[in-house]
Structures are given as structure tokens and as C-alpha cells.
């Protein structure tokens, strides 16, 4: 069971003088249950790629398979909607998609489109709100437009979760939130992943990717240039910097320490491990000095 992207090309405004190749032969497999990070410079094709993953865009060439079923194939045209339901997508600033009078109605919009029964819808709304740390009783009859920015975003994501997708794609989910909101938000998403949801997160923040993603891919000018575990990918410091990207703050610290002559392992990614590694290296040096 996986999301598979097979040699996908996509051209914007094909046949006009403004045409541009947003994707150039992308190959990618996303396994069920993983937390994948997608990074890339602005205009690298990240957003175009995620729009292919649930059939919002049709590849100019190549194919996208969801659990073995091809999106936009000629044989099963009708199933596009059903396949789409498996892959939930949360765009940047999802709070701009809210439109209903009450929070409950807005979250129910997706499940309603699935044709579910009233009772089931209510159940799902409650569940989705709980997952997003929203109080059902207190908020269900409130207008979504009266909420704060962070809460609006939670409601919008609950609206996607209520459709109970198997894959969840998030485009810059923490953009524009304050540090505290950011932290809380990313923890919520991490929690969703631990509950068994496959999470695909696009982010500009290398720190966030390093902290949460199990695997990451780097896009550059419509091509997939790096792929692997964050600790592997972030060893390519110069390559990433030449693409206008950076490495996590802690990786930078480790590299700086190594450059100063402290023999540390620069491939570590978790803060506790890094702390232990630096302490170890310092201890060792102290020992050498004494000897």
C-alpha cells in the first residue's frame, strides 16, 4: 500500500509563450505509515507535486498511483473522487477555505460530500475536533470567523481529517503561526502520525523536518535531487546551500564545532543525542589535555 509517482511531468500554460516545466520526471514512493518531508526553494515544484498526489492536477506525462489505482486513468474515471478521499490535502493558510456559519457545519462539509449519514457525520466531526484539540461543546455553534487565527487553522484541518483520509498532505502547516502555536501544531500533527496516519509535510523549516520527518526529499527546479533520512540528506550541506536551502540549526552547530576542531559526529539530528555527543567530545578533549 503506497502512493506512487511514476515519471511525472507537468507543464503550466502548455502551448503559450509563458509555458514552464514545473515538474520534470519525478519518481517517488510514499509508504503507508511514514512521515515524509518535502523541501525545496520557492518555485521548485513542491506545491505542483502535492497537487498531483490527490488528482487535483493531471500530469502532462507519467502517472500517479494511489494504493495501486491510477489517478486519471481512462478505465476508472469515476473513481477519481473516491481515490481523492483517501488522500487528504491541507493547503497553505487553510483557514481561507472556511465558509459555513458554524464550526460544526464547516467540518461536516467534507463528510457530507462523502454521502455519509447524519449520525456518522456528527461522530466524525467530534472525533476530528478532538484530534485537533478543539472543544466540541464550546465551539460547535460558534462562527468560524470569530475564532483566532490558530483556531481557524485547526478547524480547517479538522475539516480534512473528518473525511478520515489515509494519507494527509500538509503544505506549510505552521506558516504564519506564533512560536507557541507552531510548537503545539506540529506536535498535533506528529500525534496524528503516531496514530497511524501517513503524513506528507511540505516545509521551509529544516528544523521542523529534522525533528519530525522519517524520510525527506529535496526538490530543485522541478527535479527530485536528494532523498533519504534527514540525517543523511543534511550531510549535503554545500549542495543544499547552493540550492538556496539550509540545514537545521543544530546541524549547523555541529559543523561549526567540527570546523573549530572539536571531533563531533555531524550526522546526528536529535537534540538529546547532539547534547550527549558534544558533552562526550568536550570530555574527551579535557581528558587529552590532562594526560
Amino acid at each position: 500500500m503506497s502512493l506512487t509517482v511514476n515519471d511525472v511531468w507537468y507543464t503550466y500554460q502548455e502551448g503559450t509563450p509563458n509555458e514552464s516545466n514545473a515538474l520534470q520526471g519525478i519518481n517517488l514512493t510514499i509508504n503507508k505509515g511514514e512521515f515524509l518531508g518535502i523541501v525545496g526553494h520557492t518555485g521548485s515544484g513542491k506545491s505542483t507535486l502535492i497537487q498531483h498526489l490527490n488528482g487535483l492536477l493531471k500530469p502532462s506525462k507519467g502517472q500517479v498511483l494511489v494504493d495501486g489505482l491510477e489517478l486519471h486513468s481512462k478505465e476508472n474515471k469515476k473513481s477519481l473522487r473516491e481515490i481523492r478521499m483517501k488522500v487528504g490535502i491541507v493547503f497553505q493558510y487553510p483557514e481561507y477555505q472556511l465558509f459555513e456559519e458554524t464550526v460544526e457545519k464547516d467540518i461536516a462539509f467534507g463528510p457530507k460530500n462523502l454521502g455519509l449519514e447524519e449520525k456518522e457525520i456528527k461522530q466524525r466531526v467530534k472525533k476530528a475536533m478532538k484530534l485537533m484539540n478543539l472543544d466540541y461543546q464550546a465551539l460547535k455553534d460558534v462562527s468560524p470567523f470569530d475564532l483566532s487565527g490558530g483556531q481557524k487553522r485547526k478547524v480547517a484541518i479538522a475539516g480534512v481529517l473528518a473525511m478520515e483520509p489515509e494519507y494527509l498532505i500538509l503544505d506549510e502547516p505552521a506558516a504564519g503561526l506564533d512560536p507557541k502555536g507552531r510548537e503545539e501544531f506540529l506536535e498535533l500533527i506528529n500525534h496524528l502520525h503516531k496514530e497511524g496516519l501517513t503524513v506528507i509535510m511540505v516545509s521551509h523549516s529544516m528544523d521542523d523536518i529534522a525533528r519530525y520527518a522519517q524520510r525527506m526529499v529535496v526538490l530543485h527546479q522541478g527535479k527530485l535531487v536528494l532523498e533519504g533520512k534527514p540525517q543523511e540528506v543534511f550531510t549535503h550541506v554545500e549542495e543544499l546551500e547552493s540550492m538556496g536551502l539550509s540545514v537545521p540549526t543544530l546541524t549547523k552547530l555541529l559543523h561549526a564545532l567540527k570546523a573549530k576542531g572539536l571531533p563531533v559526529n555531524t550526522e546526528l539530528i536529535e537534540i538529546q543525542q547532539i547534547k550527549a555527543e558534544i558533552l562526550r567530545a568536550l570530555q574527551e578533549r579535557k581528558g587529552e589535555a590532562h594526560a
Binding site: N54, R84, F91
Partner: peptide, 8 residues
């Protein structure tokens, strides 16, 4: 697109 993703 956002609404289509929610089944609109």
C-alpha cells in the same frame, strides 16, 4: 482546489 479536496 481546497474545496475539491474536501469533496466539493
Amino acid at each position: 482546489q481546497a474545496q475539491a479536496a474536501r469533496g466539493a
